[in-house]
């Protein structure tokens, strides 16, 4: 669930060149709002407030309509997120294989809860269902990397590994 837009700082300073470039790319496409917002989310790691106004103006849609879309879909975020997104599946197949223990171990080690981001912006943690790899349950993902048959030990290894990784993309 995304956070309320009101929590955003109003005076955010953002370079809009990239957003303009994304809008240019999809300007003539029928149903272009979604790919434009997806492009912005990918580029900035979240959807900054100034880009919403820009999209509204250039695609001729109300900002409220854009907020409606942004707060509906799981992909979009209105606040900056961690460099490494950790997702632990708590779907039914993972549940019966002990997913809750994996979730708790991450909570303990990272000191952040569900949908929270660490203050240093290194990690965001999310419980999700379902990741669609039930044969590998219990399952975790860090960004696009998949970790199957998770154990408490593997959680510790993953955190140790990603603690060493760079913060820059």
């Amino acid at each position: 669930m995304s956070n309320a837009p009101a929590e955003q700082t109003p005076t955010e300073e953002i370079d809009l060149a990239a957003a303009n470039h994304i809008i240019d790319k999809y300007l003539t496409l029928h149903g272009n709002l979604m790919p434009v917002l997806q492009g912005i989310q990918d580029e900035y790691g979240y959807v900054p407030k100034p880009t919403i106004d820009l999209v509204a103006e250039r695609l001729n849609v109300y900002p409220s309509q854009i907020f409606g879309v942004l707060t509906f879909y799981a992909q979009f975020h209105l606040k900056p997120r961690g460099r490494y997104i950790i997702r632990v599946c708590v779907g039914t197949a993972c549940h019966v294989q002990g997913a809750s223990r994996i979730v708790e171990t991450f909570f303990d080690k990272l000191h952040i809860g569900h949908a929270e981001t660490s203050p240093d912006l290194r990690y965001t943690f999310e419980k999700v269902a379902c990741l669609g790899a039930c044969g590998m349950a219990p399952l975790a993902m860090v960004n696009d990397a998949t970790y199957g048959s998770m154990t408490v030990q593997k959680v510790e290894q993953i955190i140790a590994d990603y603690n060493q990784r760079p913060m820059k993309k």
Partner: peptide, 25 residues
């Protein structure tokens, strides 16, 4: 190819069409 922005309800066929059109699903 259209990559969904992610919500289970998008699998419902009429919601899916709204998603493709760039609306709430």
């Amino acid at each position: 190819l259209h990559v969904s922005a992610g919500r289970y309800i998008c699998g419902e066929e009429t919601a899916l069409m709204n998603a493709l059109e760039g609306k709430r699903a």
